[in-house]
Amino acid sequence: MIDLSFLNAFADSAFFWSALIFSVACAFTGLAAVRLSLKGEAVTSLMAISTFTTVAGVSLFLISLPELFNVGFARDTAIALLVVGSIGTIIFARLFRTGK
């Protein structure tokens, strides 16, 4: 019989480290987006902030998982960031286009 404890430990460890490394990559992209938003013009800043909300939302959703850190309230924050961030980006882009 194969050693199930090793397989379970490998799956848990692989998922933990993969989510952690993905979160670090999201943080790097988020920092690049913040830098772009500070030096660009209005629509570029809007695009960079949209990217930042995306990576922040995904990172928050990942840390809310019970397999990782089990931070319960991060899930609601992540949903709000992802949904409202996208809709707000569309609305502000329309506002910028009309120029009012």
Partner: peptide, 9 residues
């Protein structure tokens, strides 16, 4: 779960 880790990687 191993597959999910591969997707995250």
């Amino acid at each position: 779960k191993i597959g999910a880790a591969g997707i995250l990687f």
